[in-house]
């Protein structure tokens, strides 16, 4: 059996081992591979940078726990930027699991900046049925969320007294691992003209290029790469920068295997 024939039946555990090393070693030994900032991420950063202290931004956690390692560095970076600029944050979730994720994420990040719940930020909780929830917020936040996540009536929260509907919100950020930003664009942006940004898993990014190109979305932060770019922009290296080393090496390992697989395939065909 030639080496090319052997390559065809390569034990997949060898591939798994290389993948494991490709992901694991960069996490142990920091490499610091370069990260260049794309326009989509820079647009998000620039838009937030132009907001005034005291402005209000709505952050919706529309993802589940499976994608946490990719989403949390992104949420952390964006929230740090918002809190650093004294922008107030209204958090909510359109996925049941997003409720626990969002509440902990906002509380943890806000604590770094000594922010007070109810005044500087609130977390409203989870609402099912995406379309009705997004449309409802356009009329009244209080009707969709009569109480915050702790069960306190929103009328008793100083921040929520300044938020009636989308007119009082400068930006909506949907952190998601699916196509929820399409709903935000279709119902919140198209109908109520509120600006929309998406924080996405990398695999979802191509879906949203047409929306950015048409101006329906300000920009997007896609995947660990987007999060690393944002960390670079706010000059606060975090988990994304470290994770990008692992992701880049893993991609190189995968590309290497694809090339080997194709070389072996071509050589086998020539041999026949």
């Amino acid at each position: 059996m030639s080496i090319w024939e052997k390559a065809k039946t390569l034990d997949r555990r060898i591939i798994f081992l290389f993948m494991f090393l490709g992901v694991g070693l960069p996490l142990l030994a920091k490499i610091g591979l370069p990260v260049s900032v794309t326009d989509d991420v820079r647009n998000v950063y620039n838009y937030i940078e132009k907001l005034e202290p005291g402005d209000i931004v709505l952050v919706s956690y529309d993802h589940d726990t499976g994608t946490l390692p990719e989403m949390i560095p992104m949420s952390d970076a964006i929230l740090r930027h918002l809190f650093k600029k004294d922008i107030r944050v209204v958090g909510m979730a359109l996925r049941a699991e997003g409720n626990g994720i969002g509440r902990q994420n906002i509380r943890r990040t806000s604590a770094e900046f000594d922010k007070t719940e109810g005044t500087d930020y609130v977390f409203l909780g989870f609402r099912p049925e995406i379309t009705a929830a997004i449309l409802g917020l356009g009329t009244s936040f209080e009707k969709v969320f009569p109480k915050d996540d702790r069960g306190i009536p929103v009328g008793e929260l100083p921040l929520m007294n300044e938020v009636s509907n989308y007119n009082d919100v400068k930006l909506v950020i949907s952190v998601t691992d699916d196509d929820t930003p399409v709903y935000w664009v279709n119902y919140a942006n198209a109908r109520f003209k509120v600006k929309v940004v998406a924080g996405l898993t990398a695999v979802m990014a191509t879906t949203f290029f047409p929306f950015i190109d048409s101006g329906q979305m300000v920009g997007m932060v896609a995947g660990l790469k987007g999060a690393a770019e944002y960390e670079k922009l706010i000059k606060t290296p975090g988990r994304a920068a470290r994770g990008m080393d692992a992701q880049s090496i893993a991609h190189l390992v995968m590309i290497g295997f694809i090339i080997i697989g194709n070389v072996a395939f071509i050589m086998r065909r020539r041999g026949k």
């Binding site: 997949r12 992901v23 499976g66 994608t67 390692p69 995968m254 694809i258 071509i266």
Partner: peptide, 22 residues
């Protein structure tokens, strides 16, 4: 959930090696 999701990287690499042929 994160573990199940991250296993994808290993299976995608294996599948790409065998199936992603020109």
């Amino acid at each position: 959930q994160a573990t199940v999701f991250s296993l994808l990287a290993f299976f995608v690499a294996s599948a790409a090696y065998r199936g992603f042929l020109a």
